[in-house]
């Protein structure tokens, strides 16, 4: 099965590869998947005081479609608020990258990684507010 041009492009020129400080209070990290399953995605976001995603990074172990799904996700969410980012659906990734049915799980993984990263940063912010008000 041939890969779509967009998958190939993200594979060859992945956007936003990298890592951020997992312990920073403004950084949310989502790690999903397992090596045994052949995919592990790490997606990180940095959020400003207005809940806006100012930066996003990913690292992915997985097939080309998994790499492209995470790369595309970081590209899309940069500049969005957390609420906007939460509206991203895996089907949007499927459409944009023209993923075949056997690769849909790659897009699901990217959505899950994003949700995990958002949940992580939200829980950190909640704690910060608690300590601030205490």
């Amino acid at each position: 099965m041939a890969y779509s041009d967009k998958v190939v492009d993200h594979y060859q020129n992945p956007r936003n590869v990298g890592s951020m400080d997992q312990n920073s209070k403004t950084v949310g990290t989502g790690i999903v998947g397992a090596p045994e399953c052949g995919d592990v995605m790490k997606l990180q976001i940095e959020v400003d005081e207005n809940d806006r995603i100012v930066d996003a990074k990913f690292k992915t172990f997985g097939c080309g479609s998994a790499i492209a799904s995470s790369s595309l996700t970081t590209e899309w969410i940069k500049g969005q608020t957390l609420d906007e980012a939460l509206m991203l659906k895996n089907t949007d990734i499927v459409t944009e990258l023209a993923l075949p049915p056997v690769k849909i799980h790659c897009s699901v993984l990217a959505e899950d990684a994003l949700r995990a990263a958002i949940a992580d940063v939200k829980s950190k912010m909640a704690k910060t507010t608690e300590t601030a008000s205490a």
């Binding site: 890969y3 594979y11 052949g38 995919d39 172990f61 097939c63 998994a66 790499i67």
Partner: peptide, 10 residues
């Protein structure tokens, strides 16, 4: 640490 199918793509 790298997945086979993505390797083949490369």
């Amino acid at each position: 640490y790298v997945e086979g199918e993505s390797l083949m793509m490369g």
